[in-house]
């Protein structure tokens, strides 16, 4: 075990733990936001840079501070390391910068986005963003596309976290979508018209931190905060059948995996409870499920805190253009 101090809180964690996971063991506000890292996806992390923290002391043996901010999701703790997250002005400034970058080309079309209310970018913007944007250029735009008959891709909203690519690599045997082009032209795509139809491919919707990949079978009859999330399970030959069903009255409008405080699919029976497509897309009848009871959304998201505030998206000229 190694001892590490994060924002003044001391904790002992196993050797090899990342700063982010150490912080998650403490929990609460000191946990850095993570838009690309996903503990269940090997190789994820390092890209979004929202989880940057300051390492004020490298270790007991070498207590020098690290000159650069470090990505907490991919930096392992050392015995005696001192980390500053909320208590570091450098971190706050860098994170505000990253937030501004991530929002620069984002359409801010929350009023018409399925993910509104459970979007990590919305949370990030709320907690770290500054009022108004200084980005006055034309935003890059892509037309929304169906990738198969179950999944819709709104590339405008994508933050290129690569989670969906890792998901396809690690959960399915033949990946058909990926990241094409490079720089700020990079996009998630299948290149030529192709359907994502692997049995587990629906999980890309659950891992997507924003509303870039959405469930076409959820015809958002209502906003998520009007829906009642319920824990439910069913006997499924393909997956564990452990899900959250989102109900409006007695109707199941949408099925998702069960997510923990950090938006990650929970582990059940020692395995990540990834949902299969049948459970997700084709089991919308209440009779198909055993409803366990209401699910408490314990994430510090904008919906759970009831402070869902639109940042005047309608005043943004690009938003209006993108409303379809």
């Amino acid at each position: 075990m190694v001892k590490v101090t994060i924002d003044g809180i001391e904790i002992e964690v196993e050797e090899g733990t990342t700063i982010l996971n150490a912080a998650r063991q403490v929990g609460g506000d000191i946990v850095p936001p993570a838009m690309c890292y996903y503990s269940k996806l090997e190789g994820s992390g390092g890209k979004c840079r929202t989880c940057l923290v300051e390492v004020a002391a490298g270790s007991e043996r070498d207590p020098r501070p690290m000159p650069k901010l470090m990505v907490s999701c991919s930096t392992q703790v050392q015995h005696g390391m001192v980390v500053k997250n909320l208590t570091s002005d450098r971190v706050k400034e860098a994170r505000a910068g990253v937030t501004e970058f991530l929002l620069a080309n984002h359409p801010l079309d929350c009023p018409v986005c399925d993910q509104a209310g459970e979007c990590h970018l919305q949370d990030l913007g709320f907690e770290n963003g500054k009022e108004g944007t200084r980005f006055e250029e034309d935003k890059r735009t892509f037309a929304p596309r169906d990738i198969g008959d179950k999944i819709k891709l709104h590339m405008n909203r994508c933050i290129l976290c690569y989670r969906c690519v890792y998901t396809a690599n690690q959960l399915t045997n033949k990946r058909v979508h990926g990241v094409l082009n490079r720089g700020d032209h990079a996009e998630i795509s299948t290149y030529i018209e192709k359907a994502l139809d692997n049995e587990f491919i629906g999980n890309v919707i659950d891992v997507c931190p924003v509303g870039a990949l959405t469930d076409k079978t959820f015809r958002f009859k209502s906003r998520v905060w009007f829906l009642k999330p319920m824990n439910a399970h069913r006997d499924c030959p393909t997956c564990q059948g452990i899900a959250t069903v989102w109900m409006f009255g007695n109707e199941i409008q949408r099925v998702t995996g069960r997510k923990d405080a950090y938006g990650e699919i929970e582990t059940h029976n020692g395995k990540t409870a990834w949902l299969c497509n049948t459970c997700r897309f084709e089991s919308k009848d209440v009779a198909q499920w055993t409803i366990e009871g209401p699910r408490v959304i314990n994430r510090h998201s904008v919906i759970s805190q009831g402070h869902y505030v639109l940042k005047n998206p309608l005043e943004d000229k690009n938003t209006v253009k993108n409303l379809k």
Binding site: R175, V176, V179, N181, R182, Y191, I192
Partner: peptide
């Protein structure tokens, strides 16, 4: 062309998307 890239994928025994990803980079 996409078809030609698929041929490259076959030559190398990899998935077509791996070729598209590289070709567009």
């Amino acid at each position: 062309s996409p078809d030609t890239m698929d041929m490259v994928a076959e030559i190398l025994s990899i998935e077509p998307i791996e070729v598209y990803e590289v070709a567009t980079f």
